[in-house]
Nucleic acid binder design. Sequence first.
DNA 1: TTTAAATAGGACAATTTAGTCTTTTATATA
DNA 2: TATATAAAAGACTAAATTGTCCTATTTAAA
Lengths: 147, 147
Amino acid sequence: MLSNKCKYAIRAVLYLASQASATKMTHGTEIARLLKMPVAFTVKILQELAKKDLILSSKGPKGGFYINEQIKKLPIINIVNAIDGADAFHRCGIGLHKCSDDNPCPFHETFKAHREKFLSTLSSTTIGTFCIDFNENHFLYVQKEVV
Amino acid sequence: MLSNKCKYAIRAVLYLASQASATKMTHGTEIARLLKMPVAFTVKILQELAKKDLILSSKGPKGGFYINEQIKKLPIINIVNAIDGADAFHRCGIGLHKCSDDNPCPFHETFKAHREKFLSTLSSTTIGTFCIDFNENHFLYVQKEVV
DNA sequence: TTTAAATAGGACAATTTAGTCTTTTATATA
DNA sequence: TATATAAAAGACTAAATTGTCCTATTTAAA
């Protein structure tokens, strides 16, 4: 459904949200270390998110990435759209491009229902929802083991 | 959710099901051509399915791939398990390996609920369900355009 | 029995995704 | 102002996925 890159992006933004009460910045390396994600790749993703105005950044010492009130109002789906593209949630479950409501594949109904529900949750949940203390919700973000 | 390879596999098996009334064999190249899928890759997938006893094959002239009554009883999920592995339907929506019912990520409930629904459809729908005439249901299988 | 048509098997190539490294630019602070 | 720290940018590398190609084996039928 979502690419690894996109999953990393969501986790990183959720982390930034958890730090947002202090309007504190965290640099990319630190975020990657805390969330146990690949360092250089994480920084790349953060830079991409910043360029697309989904997070904010500041260069130099004490710099890093952060979010503000405006960004807290954005839904999580914006991250998905920015990283995986807007059609990530409109593909047929068995890969038929011509599959549609009018021309449904055998799994169209059930698959669409699943996809749409997940989509609607991502659309109605804002980044601000996750402005809760990181330490309290550690398990939400951190990959404790790699499979 | 499913890899391209797996989607090709499902479409190929659905096609074989549509031909099963005549217990007719179709060779790999023909299946690929009819379903507009990459030829060599399709044949590879068919061979893999045959090796895993999800379809039957016969070498030589007039040979090809086909299914029998026993195979018609198998659920579609068996194809997914054979190609993508059994855990394809048990991964967290945002990639957290430690996410579970006890330790749910923020999207756990909604994602799981509908993933399970899709899984259950694939588990309860047998290959035999698709033993209907190919020509009548052409649009189900054929990729009419490549995006 | 020869031939041609098909699967079986495995090496190989291309593409996409995932990830690193190096250099440049901006900025806080000593 | 000098220095160190961090993002920005882009080239590069690695791994996984998606495919192709070639050779061997089996088998139906002329």
